[in-house]
Amino acid sequence: MELLKFEIKINASPEKVWTVLWEDTHYRQWTSAFTQGSFYMGTLDEGSKVQFLDPENNGMFSKVVKNIPNKEMVFLHLGEIYSGIETPMDWGDATESYFLEGNDEETKLVLEINTTEEFKSFFEEKIPQAIQNVKNLAENQL
């Protein structure tokens, strides 16, 4: 596993950034950097399972390890989904963590991904685009 870390300063409050990250309409917009039409199914309550999907019902499923509104969200990725069928994978500590710190005017968003070599280049290419989308949405649409 390798820990990748990305951060961006956003001229908006942590509450606005959080809304962009996890409210369904905005989530679909910023995650288009990964796959057009991305969405999630399930709840983001701690301990719950959530599916991250594309329009063909392919993607991955994860457990919500931590959800502290406007501050921190952590997922543990458990497996892949093909045509809606979950396939558990032995990814070990494959986590995806979002940390927000700031005030009413500015938020630092830090995204950390603990990933396998197989996905490293994908994340290095796509995450900077995705967090730029979050910045644009938080600063211009809310």
Rank of each mutant, 00 (worst) to 15 (best):
I68V: 13
M89E: 12
Q132W: 03
I85F: 05
T115W: 06
L21P: 12
E118I: 08
S38Y: 02
A12L: 05
A94Y: 06
T87N: 13
V20A: 10
A33W: 00
V74Q: 12
E139L: 04
P14C: 02
E80W: 03
A12H: 05
R28E: 15
K135P: 01
S48K: 12
D104H: 03
K135V: 02
D93S: 08
K135W: 01
G59C: 12
K5Y: 03
A33F: 01
S48Y: 05
E96W: 13
Q132K: 15
P128G: 06
A12P: 06
I127K: 00
G79T: 10
P55W: 07
N103E: 03
T115N: 13
K120A: 07
I68H: 05
L111R: 12
G84A: 05
N58I: 11
D45A: 10
K108V: 15
W30K: 00
M73V: 09
F61G: 10
D24M: 14
V65C: 11
E56N: 14
S62W: 08
L109T: 05
K63C: 12
N11L: 09
N58Y: 05
F6Q: 02
N136T: 10
E46Y: 06
K135S: 06
D54P: 15
A138I: 00
E23F: 05
V134W: 02
F6C: 01
K16V: 00
T31Q: 02
E125V: 06
E106Q: 12
R28L: 10
V110D: 04
I10A: 03
L109C: 06
E117G: 14
L44R: 14
F61I: 14
N140L: 11
S38G: 04
A12Q: 07
G59M: 13
G59I: 10
I131Y: 01
V17C: 09
V134E: 02
A33L: 01
T107P: 01
S38P: 06
N57R: 13
P69E: 08
T87Y: 12
R28Y: 07
I131T: 01
G59W: 09
M1W: 04
F99R: 08
E118M: 13
I127R: 01
A94E: 10
E56F: 10
M60F: 15
W18L: 08
I68Q: 11
V74C: 08
S62E: 12
N11F: 05
Y98M: 10
P88V: 00
L53Y: 02
N136R: 08
N114T: 09
K126A: 15
V64M: 09
T25V: 15
I68K: 11
T25G: 14
Q51P: 07
N67A: 07
A130E: 01
E101W: 02
K49M: 11
